[in-house]
Design a protein around this nucleic acid. Sequence first.
DNA 1: ATGGTGCACTAACCTTTGCATAGC
DNA 2: GGCTATGCTTTGGTTAGTGCACCA
Length: 843
Amino acid sequence: MEKSSTKRKKNTGKSKFQSVDIIRDNQPLKFRQNSDKNDEHPNPQIQDDEVDWEEGCIPSSSCSNNNNVNQNNGVTIEFDALPESPKKKRIRRATAEDKEFAELVHKVHLLCLIARGRLIDVACDDPLIQASLLSLLPPHLLKLSEVGKLTANALTPLVSWFHQNFKVRSPSSAEKPFQSALAYALEAQGGTPEEVAALSVSLFRALNLTTRFVSVLDVSSLKPEVDENEQSYNASSRERKDIFNSSTLMVSKMSTGTKSSASHGNIHGTFVTSVSEAKHGCLPTNIEVKDSLASTQLIKPDLSANETQNASEEDKCPRKKGDLEFEMQLQMAMSATALVAPGRRSEASTSGSPTSPLASLSPFKRIKRITEESPSSSHAISTAIGSRKVGAPLHWAEVYCCGENMTGKWVHIDAINSIVDGELKVEAAVTACKKSLSYVVAFAGHGAKDVTRRYCEKWYKISPKRIYLEWWDAVLAPLKKLESRATGGMVPVHHKDMKSTDLVDSRSSLEDMELATRALTEPLPTNQQAYRTHPLYAMEKWLTKYQTLHPRGPVLGFCSGHTVYPRTCVQILHTKERWLREGLQVKESELPAKVVKSSTKNRRGQTIEVEDFCEGGSDEVSLFGKWQTEPLCLPPAVNGIVPKNERGQVDVWSEKCLPPGTVHLRFPRLVPVVKRLGINFAPAMVGFEFRNGRSIPVYEGIVVCTEFKETVLEAYAEEEQRREEEERKREERQALSRWYQLLSSMVVRQRLNNTYLNNVESKTVTDPLKTRNKSSRAASAYVNESTVPHRDNVHGTKIHDSDKIHSQNHEHVFLTDDENFDEDSMTRTKRCSCGVSVQVEEL
DNA sequence: ATGGTGCACTAACCTTTGCATAGC
DNA sequence: GGCTATGCTTTGGTTAGTGCACCA
């Protein structure tokens, strides 16, 4: 980060630098002119910076022809840019940390949405729900389950019937288990788009049709939010988005009534849109509370009475865009029923936060904008005024139709909008609603499968918004198996000349092939920029320094006069040395695929630059492609000698880089061992470490001939054992030495106490009892419990117990006769006639 | 209003093979 | 005098991504 910050300083935009300088130049100049007689400045910082601003350049010409003239002193300052230029707002870019966090949130959100999808899938299998649905079905539609070769057309009447009988409605109550919610939706013959879609899946499954529940995972962005100011904006907009998140395409026959239509799409939560519900207190979440408050306030005729208070509250806590939009829509609804006078409407509409872009628009304009934003695809799509719902189709079903194509086909069925086989319309509708088709996942049999490819034509736009493939594949792998097991029946492939039993494949793998084919047949983008990172196509214009086209063809087309090649033709180029790291070497006869200017020239300093110049400009680097390389063929070890490079070492980037007949031993302190054994070796360089602005090679272990491996390892083990033993002994010696120092110092201290403290205390009157008790406890503890190592045999050891001396004037005397010696622990116990004992460890 | 283009800016990545001095 | 440890100082080119102005 230090690096970045320094760099940022260096690279800071011109205007930023100027603005700082201008302020500096401006202030000190004024100050200087005015302070000729006054050397003290209130701000010492400015004085400190005097040298800096003196260095600032004031164009000589500025004195004559300039607009900014200081009339008092005649000094003219030319401003290159206005200090408060509105153009230069500071942009906070996303850091690596932000990106990592966004990625984590994205992953977790994906997992949650997958879990949600699985729950719905399980609920769709509920036999009670299925039976109930069947009981509602007209008899003629029941025959559908008997159709041998199902086609999309055959499903149309069923979908129409479902569409007529099940409507999208606002959620009826607080959050409850999805299964219960589904049962409730079935009973009410309507529910959230998610529930209605799930009911359709359940119905299809009840009819023995192989069906999946398909859901667009409307996941949080993989890219972090950027500008700080923007962050707060985005936060609110996200909240708003969450509220609207679950929206789905609205059909013209939207059920109406006392409840305005809304949905709660996914895990983000539910909300209450109807005024009556809000008033009656069905408020399961905080959002609902806010909504209800807002709506209640709007309904009250005496709106202006509360205006001041509301305004002050809004100042503290500005309302969200979602709330504003809701208010606006409510007003629209109420204006239709003449509940609120038009004049008041406009009043209320202006009461919103001025920060909201929508707030500045009239309600009609806002409605118009929303209506315009809504999809206008071929099928009937409408936005109900006052409904809070504008959105993309996020849930539908896929039914496997054996009668479609040669091998059968998964057919898209959006029962909510009564669309059959409309997979190509999905992307347009979703894009029109500003949603992304990043992940379309089909759920069946407790499993899941990514079917995004079926619904998305412009994969290159979707791809960067998705998590990296390895993670996503790993997550889906077990679920894909479950899904495949549930839906992937054996499919007869119909050929005239073959029996159907000869060629069978699972539906799942056939579908995989279908999706893979789609991936390879994406249409060419019409804009050049798309070719920069397009996974399938490439344009020479966008190749990087270390890339080339090989082979140069086939030409797939043209875009703005530029030739389009397959991405597979783009090859990465490396220097010879760089290929060695990959365990490859450039073939002898190969000419460089590309010659580029060396980027390391300037780094070495001017000396080398001059040398290069004298040599005729050898600052060019030859690059080679992989097709010009062959597996690395290093000279083998001969007669126990390790082949080394020009630096006398072996670069061990990987095992491939080891010369044949050698082995890399990654242990420390091996060099003295092999030197002692007289075995030839080479230090193993395993990489670089960037430190202090330089690359420092990192060495780890050595490379020796394979035949010496065992010898070296044995010797190394012995050496290590010896070293450890020595280390242990050294530590013991150190410990003893420290103990001896400690005890010596204690004895000296004691002796000093005896000599000097005694005299002092005899003169000082203290509380004798207190002192004695305190110190005697400490002293006896020390004497009795101490186990002390001793350098020599101790004869007639004396320990002066100051406490006892204080009280009894007693000096311990340890007679040799009273001591005993324990040979096991090498401990000698000495006793004084007063009962005090001392244990002495002898060496 | 929208989308394409070109330019500018910037974070992150990639590159990559000490030196002088003090202390033992 | 030779060896070892320590501190010094802290790159710059390339690329991908993004923002912005301009234009069709």
